[in-house]
Simulated assay, not measured.
Amino acid sequence: MPSLRSITQITVFLWLAASSLQAGEVYATFNVEARHHAELAFTSSGTVAKVNVDVASLVHKGEVLAELNNDDLAAALEVSKVALKYAKRDYERQVKVKKLVDAAKFDQYAYKYEHAKAQLAYQQAMLDKTQLKAPFDGIIYEKMVEVGDVVSGAMIRTVMKVQSLKERKLVLAFDQKYWREIKPGMTFRYSVDGDSTVYTGKISRVYPYANDANRKIRAEVEAEGFTPGLFGDGYILVPDAK
Protein backbone atom coordinates (compact mmCIF):
# COMPACT_ATOMS: atom_id res chain seq x y z
CA MET A 1 0.00 0.00 0.00
CA PRO A 2 1.55 3.35 -1.03
CA SER A 3 2.58 5.69 1.75
CA LEU A 4 0.97 9.08 2.41
CA ARG A 5 4.15 10.74 1.11
CA SER A 6 3.97 8.79 -2.17
CA ILE A 7 0.32 9.74 -2.64
CA THR A 8 1.15 13.38 -2.00
CA GLN A 9 4.00 13.30 -4.53
CA ILE A 10 1.76 11.71 -7.17
CA THR A 11 -0.96 14.31 -6.50
CA VAL A 12 1.50 17.19 -6.87
CA PHE A 13 2.90 15.67 -10.07
CA LEU A 14 -0.58 15.34 -11.60
CA TRP A 15 -1.47 18.90 -10.56
CA LEU A 16 1.71 20.26 -12.15
CA ALA A 17 1.08 18.29 -15.34
CA ALA A 18 -2.47 19.61 -15.55
CA SER A 19 -1.30 23.18 -14.90
CA SER A 20 1.33 22.89 -17.62
CA LEU A 21 -1.27 21.61 -20.11
CA GLN A 22 -3.68 24.44 -19.32
CA ALA A 23 -0.92 27.01 -19.62
CA GLY A 24 -0.18 25.74 -23.15
CA GLU A 25 -3.77 26.03 -24.39
CA VAL A 26 -5.72 29.28 -24.73
CA TYR A 27 -9.47 28.92 -25.16
CA ALA A 28 -11.06 30.87 -28.02
CA THR A 29 -14.45 31.09 -29.65
CA PHE A 30 -14.92 31.99 -33.32
CA ASN A 31 -17.35 32.90 -36.06
CA VAL A 32 -16.94 31.71 -39.65
CA GLU A 33 -16.72 34.45 -42.28
CA ALA A 34 -16.00 34.47 -45.99
CA ARG A 35 -12.35 35.36 -46.55
CA HIS A 36 -13.41 37.85 -49.24
CA HIS A 37 -16.77 39.60 -49.32
CA ALA A 38 -18.05 42.85 -50.77
CA GLU A 39 -21.20 44.95 -50.81
CA LEU A 40 -21.73 46.25 -54.33
CA ALA A 41 -23.47 49.48 -55.37
CA PHE A 42 -23.85 51.67 -58.45
CA THR A 43 -22.00 55.00 -58.30
CA SER A 44 -24.07 56.39 -61.18
CA SER A 45 -27.77 57.27 -61.38
CA GLY A 46 -30.28 55.65 -63.69
CA THR A 47 -32.79 52.88 -64.28
CA VAL A 48 -31.70 49.26 -64.03
CA ALA A 49 -31.92 47.71 -67.51
CA LYS A 50 -30.29 44.30 -66.91
CA VAL A 51 -29.72 41.97 -63.96
CA ASN A 52 -27.58 39.05 -65.09
CA VAL A 53 -27.30 37.07 -61.84
CA ASP A 54 -29.36 35.83 -58.93
CA VAL A 55 -28.71 34.56 -55.41
CA ALA A 56 -26.31 31.57 -55.53
CA SER A 57 -24.96 32.55 -58.97
CA LEU A 58 -21.26 31.83 -59.43
CA VAL A 59 -19.43 34.84 -60.84
CA HIS A 60 -15.96 35.61 -62.17
CA LYS A 61 -13.86 38.71 -61.61
CA GLY A 62 -14.85 41.46 -64.07
CA GLU A 63 -18.16 39.84 -65.01
CA VAL A 64 -21.05 42.32 -65.49
CA LEU A 65 -23.65 41.54 -62.83
CA ALA A 66 -26.15 44.31 -63.56
CA GLU A 67 -26.39 47.31 -65.86
CA LEU A 68 -28.19 50.64 -65.99
CA ASN A 69 -29.84 51.98 -69.11
CA ASN A 70 -26.80 53.40 -70.91
CA ASP A 71 -27.67 53.62 -74.60
CA ASP A 72 -26.68 57.30 -74.72
CA LEU A 73 -23.29 56.66 -73.10
CA ALA A 74 -22.64 53.68 -75.38
CA ALA A 75 -23.36 55.87 -78.41
CA ALA A 76 -21.07 58.61 -77.07
CA LEU A 77 -18.33 56.03 -76.63
CA GLU A 78 -18.64 54.97 -80.27
CA VAL A 79 -18.42 58.62 -81.38
CA SER A 80 -15.23 59.00 -79.34
CA LYS A 81 -13.74 55.88 -80.94
CA VAL A 82 -14.37 57.31 -84.42
CA ALA A 83 -12.92 60.68 -83.44
CA LEU A 84 -9.79 59.01 -82.10
CA LYS A 85 -9.42 56.91 -85.23
CA TYR A 86 -9.25 59.96 -87.52
CA ALA A 87 -7.25 62.11 -85.09
CA LYS A 88 -4.64 59.37 -84.99
CA ARG A 89 -4.49 59.20 -88.80
CA ASP A 90 -3.99 62.97 -89.07
CA TYR A 91 -1.32 62.93 -86.40
CA GLU A 92 0.60 60.04 -88.00
CA ARG A 93 0.58 61.86 -91.38
CA GLN A 94 2.00 64.98 -89.74
CA VAL A 95 4.71 62.96 -88.01
CA LYS A 96 5.97 61.81 -91.40
CA VAL A 97 6.38 65.41 -92.62
CA LYS A 98 7.18 67.00 -89.27
CA LYS A 99 10.35 68.66 -90.59
CA LEU A 100 8.40 70.37 -93.37
CA VAL A 101 5.52 71.84 -91.35
CA ASP A 102 5.24 74.69 -88.90
CA ALA A 103 5.80 73.56 -85.27
CA ALA A 104 2.63 75.27 -84.06
CA LYS A 105 0.55 73.50 -86.71
CA PHE A 106 2.09 70.15 -85.80
CA ASP A 107 1.25 70.81 -82.14
CA GLN A 108 -2.40 71.33 -83.09
CA TYR A 109 -2.59 67.84 -84.58
CA ALA A 110 -0.78 66.40 -81.59
CA TYR A 111 -3.23 68.15 -79.26
CA LYS A 112 -6.26 66.85 -81.18
CA TYR A 113 -4.88 63.31 -81.00
CA GLU A 114 -4.19 63.48 -77.25
CA HIS A 115 -7.55 65.11 -76.63
CA ALA A 116 -9.31 62.35 -78.56
CA LYS A 117 -7.56 59.70 -76.44
CA ALA A 118 -8.57 61.47 -73.24
CA GLN A 119 -12.16 61.85 -74.43
CA LEU A 120 -12.38 58.14 -75.22
CA ALA A 121 -11.05 57.25 -71.77
CA TYR A 122 -13.59 59.59 -70.17
CA GLN A 123 -16.53 58.12 -72.09
CA GLN A 124 -15.38 54.61 -71.24
CA ALA A 125 -15.23 55.54 -67.55
CA MET A 126 -18.74 57.00 -67.68
CA LEU A 127 -20.05 53.82 -69.30
CA ASP A 128 -18.25 51.63 -66.77
CA LYS A 129 -20.07 53.42 -63.94
CA THR A 130 -23.37 52.07 -65.30
CA GLN A 131 -22.11 48.49 -65.03
CA LEU A 132 -21.84 46.57 -61.77
CA LYS A 133 -18.92 44.15 -62.05
CA ALA A 134 -17.71 41.31 -59.85
CA PRO A 135 -14.60 42.38 -57.91
CA PHE A 136 -13.38 38.78 -57.56
CA ASP A 137 -14.40 35.18 -58.28
CA GLY A 138 -17.19 34.19 -55.91
CA ILE A 139 -20.88 33.61 -55.31
CA ILE A 140 -23.78 36.05 -54.95
CA TYR A 141 -25.38 35.62 -51.53
CA GLU A 142 -27.76 38.59 -51.49
CA LYS A 143 -29.49 40.51 -54.30
CA MET A 144 -31.63 43.58 -53.65
CA VAL A 145 -32.18 44.93 -57.16
CA GLU A 146 -34.51 44.16 -60.08
CA VAL A 147 -34.95 45.41 -63.64
CA GLY A 148 -36.78 48.74 -63.55
CA ASP A 149 -35.42 49.86 -60.18
CA VAL A 150 -34.10 53.42 -60.07
CA VAL A 151 -30.76 54.02 -58.35
CA SER A 152 -29.03 57.25 -57.44
CA GLY A 153 -25.31 57.88 -57.38
CA ALA A 154 -25.97 60.60 -54.79
CA MET A 155 -27.61 58.12 -52.40
CA ILE A 156 -25.49 54.99 -52.74
CA ARG A 157 -27.16 51.80 -51.55
CA THR A 158 -26.01 48.20 -51.64
CA VAL A 159 -27.73 46.21 -54.39
CA MET A 160 -25.75 42.95 -54.23
CA LYS A 161 -23.42 41.09 -51.90
CA VAL A 162 -20.74 38.70 -53.09
CA GLN A 163 -18.38 36.42 -51.19
CA SER A 164 -15.59 34.00 -52.01
CA LEU A 165 -16.93 30.58 -52.96
CA LYS A 166 -14.93 28.29 -50.63
CA GLU A 167 -12.29 30.44 -48.95
CA ARG A 168 -13.19 31.14 -45.34
CA LYS A 169 -11.65 32.65 -42.24
CA LEU A 170 -12.33 31.93 -38.59
CA VAL A 171 -12.45 35.14 -36.57
CA LEU A 172 -11.29 34.13 -33.11
CA ALA A 173 -11.88 35.92 -29.82
CA PHE A 174 -9.68 35.16 -26.79
CA ASP A 175 -9.05 36.75 -23.40
CA GLN A 176 -6.93 39.89 -23.54
CA LYS A 177 -4.61 38.63 -20.79
CA TYR A 178 -2.92 36.44 -23.42
CA TRP A 179 -2.01 39.40 -25.62
CA ARG A 180 1.73 38.75 -25.24
CA GLU A 181 1.55 35.01 -25.91
CA ILE A 182 -0.62 34.66 -29.02
CA LYS A 183 1.30 35.07 -32.29
CA PRO A 184 0.71 34.37 -36.01
CA GLY A 185 1.75 30.86 -36.95
CA MET A 186 0.41 29.19 -33.79
CA THR A 187 -1.82 26.15 -34.19
CA PHE A 188 -5.55 26.39 -33.47
CA ARG A 189 -7.37 23.12 -32.73
CA TYR A 190 -11.12 23.55 -33.04
CA SER A 191 -14.56 22.17 -33.83
CA VAL A 192 -17.58 23.79 -35.44
CA ASP A 193 -20.95 23.76 -33.72
CA GLY A 194 -22.90 20.73 -34.94
CA ASP A 195 -19.79 18.95 -36.25
CA SER A 196 -17.86 16.55 -34.00
CA THR A 197 -14.77 16.61 -36.25
CA VAL A 198 -11.66 18.20 -34.74
CA TYR A 199 -9.87 20.51 -37.19
CA THR A 200 -6.55 22.32 -37.02
CA GLY A 201 -5.35 25.54 -38.61
CA LYS A 202 -2.71 28.23 -38.26
CA ILE A 203 -3.28 31.74 -36.98
CA SER A 204 -2.68 34.08 -39.91
CA ARG A 205 -3.03 37.39 -38.07
CA VAL A 206 -3.67 38.82 -34.63
CA TYR A 207 -5.61 42.08 -34.39
CA PRO A 208 -3.54 44.84 -32.75
CA TYR A 209 -6.19 45.94 -30.24
CA ALA A 210 -8.51 44.65 -27.53
CA ASN A 211 -12.27 45.18 -27.53
CA ASP A 212 -12.96 47.41 -24.53
CA ALA A 213 -16.54 46.10 -24.29
CA ASN A 214 -15.73 42.43 -23.73
CA ARG A 215 -11.95 42.56 -23.11
CA LYS A 216 -11.28 40.18 -26.00
CA ILE A 217 -8.63 40.21 -28.71
CA ARG A 218 -9.38 38.84 -32.14
CA ALA A 219 -7.31 36.72 -34.50
CA GLU A 220 -7.86 34.97 -37.83
CA VAL A 221 -7.36 31.42 -39.04
CA GLU A 222 -7.74 30.54 -42.73
CA ALA A 223 -10.14 27.69 -43.57
CA GLU A 224 -12.27 26.35 -46.42
CA GLY A 225 -15.75 25.04 -47.02
CA PHE A 226 -17.61 26.09 -43.87
CA THR A 227 -20.85 28.04 -44.20
CA PRO A 228 -20.36 31.69 -43.18
CA GLY A 229 -22.13 32.51 -39.94
CA LEU A 230 -21.31 29.24 -38.19
CA PHE A 231 -19.95 29.30 -34.64
CA GLY A 232 -17.36 27.18 -32.88
CA ASP A 233 -14.64 27.06 -30.29
CA GLY A 234 -11.24 25.52 -29.64
CA TYR A 235 -7.80 25.99 -28.20
CA ILE A 236 -4.78 27.93 -29.39
CA LEU A 237 -1.69 25.82 -28.73
CA VAL A 238 1.03 27.95 -27.16
CA PRO A 239 4.44 26.25 -27.45
CA ASP A 240 6.82 26.14 -24.48
CA ALA A 241 4.25 27.64 -22.14
CA LYS A 242 5.28 27.77 -18.50
Rank of each mutant, 00 (worst) to 15 (best):
V97H: 09
E78S: 12
V101C: 05
F106K: 01
K61H: 11
A18E: 13
I217Y: 00
V151L: 03
T158C: 03
V221E: 07
D107H: 06
K183V: 00
A17N: 09
N52R: 13
S45Y: 05
R168K: 14
G46M: 03
L16Y: 05
H115A: 14
L120V: 02
T11H: 13
L100C: 04
I203N: 01
E92I: 03
N70K: 14
A41N: 09
A116H: 06
S3A: 09
Y190W: 03
A18S: 11
V97G: 03
N69L: 11
L4Q: 11
M144F: 03
S44L: 09
L84N: 06
V59C: 07
E142Q: 13
V95G: 02
A223L: 01
E220N: 11
L230Y: 10
R215G: 03
E92T: 13
P208F: 07
V59L: 02
A66R: 00
E92D: 13
A41W: 03
Y111K: 14
K133S: 06
L65G: 04
Y27K: 15
Y27T: 15
M186I: 02
G185D: 02
V101R: 11
D149W: 00
S204H: 10
S57H: 08
S196H: 09
K169V: 15
K169H: 10
M1D: 12
M186T: 03
R93V: 06
A110N: 13
V53S: 02
G229E: 08
I7F: 15
D54H: 09
Y122C: 01
G185I: 04
R205N: 06
A154Q: 13
Y122G: 01
F188I: 04
A76G: 06
L16D: 07
T43H: 09
L16Q: 11
A83S: 09
A76Y: 02
Q108N: 10
S20K: 11
M1S: 15
K61D: 05
R5Y: 07
V198N: 01
Y91G: 00
L65N: 05
L65D: 08
Q123K: 10
N211P: 00
E167Q: 15
I10G: 03
L58H: 10
A38S: 15
Q22T: 12
A118R: 07
D90F: 10
F136E: 07
V51C: 01
E224S: 13
H36L: 12
D90S: 14
Y86V: 05
Y190P: 01
R5S: 12
V206G: 04
G138H: 06
H36V: 07
D90Y: 12
Q9I: 10
V238D: 00
Y141I: 05
N70R: 14
R157T: 15
